[in-house]
């Protein structure tokens, strides 16, 4: 199987699939430089860098970006705490209801986002909670927990068991064991989970439309532009920047989990 070559038809089909997934995004990179500002004309009549300066000078874009970064940071921290606790408990024993807990964690992302969104919105209405920064965070943290949990739980399983017992056997109490043995072994998984959670929150729009009041996160800002295009060139530039910004944490998460998983696997 290693030696034989892929049939030509398969190569073409696989190449077509990859092209289908990547060409549309690359197209945005071209549009960010177009001189045309009233339509999506192709091919672009000319190329310019001026839209970058225009976008740079836009306070609404900066505000939306700032809000998105804040929401993503705080949601990620909450998700890290909750996801780690949950993974620790589930991997530790076969306690009553661990299946239910796993399901509960996965549910916010398994059900369509609109259901999570509308459920939260009607609950906020019922409880008379005004929409604010914190209602956005509440929604984001809820569906970010699963990403951290998924990354942490597999690693926890490997660490718990004899490594924890060995540490306790050598005189370390529960907290010392956590500090010196568990944390170093799960840190890369947590970092990867945190980065993915950040990317997820930074990009989220469906739940956010229901849990945000007047504030605009960057995706909400983009959605407005998509529904009612006003300044197409600015949208083009923002779209390109968003692609580049999400690229980094995902790439980092990939390298983090890939490298350490094999090493830790051999260690046992």
């Amino acid at each position: 199987m290693h030696s034989d070559r892929a049939p030509l038809g398969l190569k073409i089909a696989a190449g077509f699939g990859l092209a289908f997934m990547h060409l549309p995004i690359l197209l945005i990179f071209v549009y960010a430089f177009t001189t045309e500002d009233k339509s999506y004309q192709w091919p672009p009549p000319g190329f310019t860098l001026k839209w970058f300066a225009v976008t740079w000078a836009r306070p609404d874009v900066w505000e939306a970006l700032g809000l998105s970064l804040q929401v993503a940071s705080i949601s990620t921290i909450i998700a890290l705490v909750l996801g780690t606790l949950c993974a620790a408990a589930v991997s530790r024993t076969r306690f009553f209801g661990r299946e239910a807990i796993s399901l509960l964690v996965i549910l916010p992302i398994a059900l369509p986002g609109i259901i999570t969104g509308i459920a939260l919105r009607s609950a906020f209405n019922l409880a008379d909670i005004p929409f604010s920064f914190w209602t956005i965070v509440l929604g984001h943290a809820t569906f970010c927990v699963v990403v951290v949990y998924n990354n942490a739980v597999a690693r926890f399983r490997r660490v718990s068991g004899s490594l924890v017992e060995a540490s306790m056997d050598l005189g370390a109490n529960s907290f010392q064991t956590f500090r010196y043995i568990i944390l170093p072994n799960i840190s890369t998984a947590l970092l990867a989970g945190g980065m993915l959670a950040f990317a997820l929150s930074f990009d989220e729009v469906i739940v956010t439309t229901f849990t945000a009041g007047q504030q605009q996160t960057l995706p909400i800002w983009m959605l407005e532009e998509l529904v009612r295009p006003r300044e197409r060139p600015v949208t083009n530039v923002v779209a390109m920047v968003v692609v580049l910004v999400t690229f980094l944490p995902v790439l980092a998460a990939y390298t983090l989990t890939r490298g350490t998983d094999t090493v830790a696997g051999q260690g046992k």
């Binding site: 995004i25 945005i28 729009v205 779209a239």
Partner: peptide, 9 residues
């Protein structure tokens, strides 16, 4: 992991 809205856009 690319932005959903950017992909739609």
């Amino acid at each position: 992991w690319s932005s959903y809205l950017v992909k739609v856009y």
